[in-house]
Design a protein around this nucleic acid. Structure first.
Lengths: 207, 207
DNA sequence: CGAGGAATCAAACGATCGTTTGAGCATACG
DNA sequence: CGTATGCTCAAACGATCGTTTGATTCCTCG
């Protein structure tokens, strides 16, 4: 049982603090001393529980992406191959789980961590993400290919790539995604989804 | 005159090496020792010529963005307010200078540095970029507003934001932008511009 | 030629980094 | 009760960080 205020086990308190500090200062910019101080645990606890800082970084991704991509795949399975499925449906299956994740504060921090991971061209990290979660992108791309049969493979990859960039940028909290204080949370999420889906669908379907 | 192989003055050799290493390892991840070693200059040269590492970072941005945004503004001035101007024309004015910059190897590295700057939520850096180059984004947004009179201000900001994200992502070299070896450079650049402009225009004009 | 400012150099500064150590504490089981 | 086992802790490890110093070299100009 932890002695400090929060009643969470040490491992999870580290993961929470890591998510926040990685989002703010990057993976190299956030030190284990800042991190353990913010979590209220001993400096050595990171190496004891995770082995190294790199493995901690991977664990931060694993915890969130398992949940995020699980929901994405579940939503996609429901509509994949269905003749009635539209581009907008597929985009909804991709975007809605991410917006749900952004619902609580710690989840939205993770989207910024993810945006950082894209910006870092670190090969180890990219390989880890590709190996563990690449199949999700491939499944969604395959479904887009089915719904956009007139697009060449190259053209399709281009558009999916651009959609990915737009969504990552938007959801990492740079611009418009901040909720105004007079709009309730669930309504803001629906509006955000509408903007993202409308924009991405138009780009994908571009003549 | 420098003693080493390249016939460039020390200051520019530092800027070149900084661009490359910042793109690869980030601003905190690239050390002055790596940097000066790569540039073939003494460690103290950075602080002598630039004052500090932070000022070096700003100088890396200033050098490229002055050129990039100068060309963007010049291209925009030619078409702004013209009744015959299309969305595609404005996007071309925004995108073409960036693709020209990506033409030489060092220029394309800079687009990755720029993508990193977006991912970092460092307030100092964001303030610097906003103060020095924010007027460019405002001018382009104003022109989009003229050409899309039916969009609410909020809707317009959303779409411009998403276009920015898509372009930054694409031009920082994550995905499709790599040129295949059997395609000549100028042709690749035209094709890339077509993909980007087509996608962005469709997103902006979305019903 | 000789003075003087600009530039470069090796070396060191204190601070901070990720990681390791070994003692100390707690809880569970024979 | 005694002893494992899991965990926490302060302290230290060597390495590396950005920056500063003071001497030395280079080049220009009187």
């Amino acid at each position: 049982m932890p002695a400090s205020s929060a009643a969470l086990p040490t491992k999870e308190r580290i993961l929470g603090a890591a998510e926040e500090l990685f989002a703010q200062h990057g993976f190299e910019g956030a030190s284990l001393r800042q991190l353990t101080a913010a979590a209220g645990v001993n400096l050595a606890a990171v190496n004891y529980h995770f082995g190294s800082k790199d493995r901690l970084i991977e664990e931060v991704f694993r915890r969130r992406l398992d949940q995020l991509n699980g929901r994405r795949m579940a939503a996609l399975q429901k509509i994949a191959g269905d003749p009635a499925t539209t581009i907008e449906d597929v985009l909804e299956a991709f975007i809605a789980p991410a917006l749900e994740l952004s619902h609580d504060a710690s989840g939205s921090l993770f989207m910024r961590v993810l945006a950082r991971a894209f910006a870092e061209h670190d090969d180890t990290l990219r390989k880890f993400l590709s190996e563990n979660y690449g199949h999700v992108m491939r499944q969604f791309t395959a479904e887009f290919a089915r719904l956009l049969p007139n697009l060449s493979k190259e053209e399709l990859y281009w558009r999916v790539d651009l959609v990915t960039g737009a969504l990552t940028h938007a959801m990492s909290g740079f611009g418009m995604i901040q909720r105004k204080s007079d709009v309730p949370e669930h309504q803001h999420r629906e509006q955000t989804a509408e903007h993202l889906i409308g924009f991405a669908a138009a780009g994908l379907k571009s003549p």
